[in-house]
Design a protein around this nucleic acid. Sequence first.
RNA 1: UGGGGUGUAGCCAAGCUGGUUAAGGCAAUGGGUUCUGACCCCAUGACCGAGGGUUCAAAUCCUUCCGCCCCAGCCA
Length: 584
Amino acid sequence: MTHDPASAPASSGSSGQDAPAVSRDFIREMIDKDMAAGRYGGRVHTRFPPEPNGYLHIGHAKSICLNFGVAREYGGKCNLRFDDTNPAKEETEYVEAIKADVRWLGFEWDGPERYASDYFGQLCEYAEALIAKGKAYVDSQTADQIRDTRGTLTEPGVASPYRGRSVEENLDLFRRMRAGEFPDGSHVLRARIDMAAPNMVMRDPVLYRIRRARHHRTGDAWCIYPLYDFAHCLSDSIEGITHSLCTLEFENNREIYDWLLAELGVYRSRQTEFARLNITHTVLSKRKLIQLVQGGHVRGWDDPRMPTLSGLRRRGYPPEAIREFCARVGMSRAAGTVAEYGLLEFCVREALNRTSPRIMAVLDPVRVVIENYPEGRTEWFEMPYFPEEGGGAPASWTGPETRAVPFGRELLIERDDFREDAPKKFFRLAPGREVRLRYAYFVTCTGVVKNEAGEVTEIRCVYDPATQGGDAPDGRKVKGTLHWVSAAHGVPARARLYEHMFAAAAVDAPEGGDFTDTLNPGSLRIAQARLEPAVADAKTGDVVQFERLGYFRVDEDSRPGNLVFNRTVTLKDAWARAEQKAGS
RNA sequence: UGGGGUGUAGCCAAGCUGGUUAAGGCAAUGGGUUCUGACCCCAUGACCGAGGGUUCAAAUCCUUCCGCCCCAGCCA
């Protein structure tokens, strides 16, 4: 998809397989202007720059969709660059996971993946150039002293006693830092800017520190490492990035970004910030996600309850749904806004509705006996995998159009679908009421069997043979249609049912307190389900709709004969909502 | 209390070089359709953080105030 100014707010993509339509946001408008003004030679070159210190989550997806999306729209390029300047935190395991996640989301970077560590040599040269200009010096204060003399938000800082060192001395010291002559923490390289700058970032920021730690790529080749402020702008410059898009918390850093590129006289990329993504009912900060994993609140980074891309993938969220969500949330500079989780779910349902075959499964079975149905008889009904009204099977579907479903005298239906004492608006099964068993017969409840505890253990019904296939020749209608599974044929399976991890948004969590206090203890529930036999051989990664219940994906824990499904998302349930409203 | 940002319906978000009936989506509600109470279709909502001012005319310009976010890591 190339950018065509003449049809700017384009969303015309009628193929339906395109990236989601993206509206003009302030970033794209800025790029439009840059293009019109001929800046950067008409190039657009972005980058997605994660630090390989953890797994990507849906917040990163917003940035990925932006950076790769913009590049695609303008016929430009997008690099994947690992911001690996802090060896203490970074690991190869994460770079591999990040690459896989970006690809899964549907994007491919231009050329090989880059690393800030690729530029360590060049960065050192830039540092020396800065020293030579008198714009950087080696400070030999302790970390505490540097902090104590930085001043406060309202008071200026105090110059370091080492601020006046000569260029020669600074150059010598810096080279010896690099050569490994000094212990960790004994010296740092600082920019010489302004200790009274109102922007704290500009009070002689530290550019390099001595840190003897094994780097995941460069090993022990280096003992000094650049900091973000020094490495990021110069990495952008080296790669010829035109638009350096990052989140709002880096706004204050833009000044040092511009300052360094200007002082060094190198190619100047331009930083633009946008608001990071927040979503209700979950947390999106790396720190908190780590706590969830390490605190044992979830099974791991790819727990289906996690907002990590690996978790969402395992849960069954299709990448196109995540892209669509990012497109719908939009871009702005308003911080602290929180997207509703419901929007994400809407996007997931929208994507899955088109592509998921339907089958019947019962999550909470109760036995139904059809008194007038012959004992030992089994009928097989051919049922479509895709509803005809929805246009039938999608192009991507390579399986059969239908499957055979066995019906017999004893069935299992959803416990929720029966009510002994049912209100008028309850369209399902109840004593004396007739409903349709999907694609099979109309049945009427004649009574129930209970155990000593008073629980219904069996529902007795009679069926109308004339309604075979699910329609009454006399034209009579029923309000309810229930899904069902033959008791004799139902395949046992576990279904993991998920709920929100948190009651509200992470941003609503009290600061300081332990946010895990607000964890939903019921975020995972396991149902012993019974499925129609057609899905007995479902394989990991398969996604199906359990009719009337939701979309389910076969988990990696699943084994033949021991199936495990994750409920990706429920279907909208107007009845449950109405009842809930009436109840409360 | 320094600096940098930001504030449009329940949520996200256009519009902001002044004049539009203040886009669109999600949610909600009502209705239609329906062998998934799903999908689909139709309908319903804001006077733009607050107060002044400029103007024939302001969400859009000026001003004052209020709220919220970010910055005092040798993290990114």
